[in-house]
């Protein structure tokens, strides 16, 4: 399956990245190359369950507000601030 400009733009929309036409076109080739490398996985078989380890209750974090708390000045970092909050254009309910 080859990447088309259409598909590239769909992916860019999913990833919230704007692309110029030239960028979208160039990406088709580049993504095809990456896909070619990944294709080997399609035929891979007889594989073990992924090993991920595990953590028990004893090793988890205590529910204490004094351990590791580091309050951060959110507003100092924000690009746009109003009424003690970060401001963005109106979000459509979703």
């Amino acid at each position: 399956m080859e990447y088309t400009v259409e598909r590239v733009r769909e992916l860019a929309a999913m990833a919230r990245i704007s692309l110029a036409d030239a960028e979208a076109e160039a990406l088709c080739c580049e993504l095809n190359a990456m896909r070619a490398i990944a294709e080997t996985l399609r035929d891979a078989s007889d594989l073990p369950d992924p090993f991920l380890g595990a953590v028990g209750l004893g090793e988890m974090r205590d529910d204490s507000p004094h351990v590791g708390l580091l309050r951060t000045d959110v507003l100092a970092l924000s690009p746009a601030v109003a009424k003690d909050a970060t401001v963005v254009p109106r979000a459509v309910e979703g």
């Binding site: 009424k83 003690d84 909050a85 970060t86 401001v87 963005v88 254009p89 109106r90 979000a91």
Partner: peptide, 9 residues
């Protein structure tokens, strides 16, 4: 939501 802006808390 306030007018055409949204405040994030």
């Amino acid at each position: 939501h306030e007018g055409n802006e949204t405040l994030v808390d």
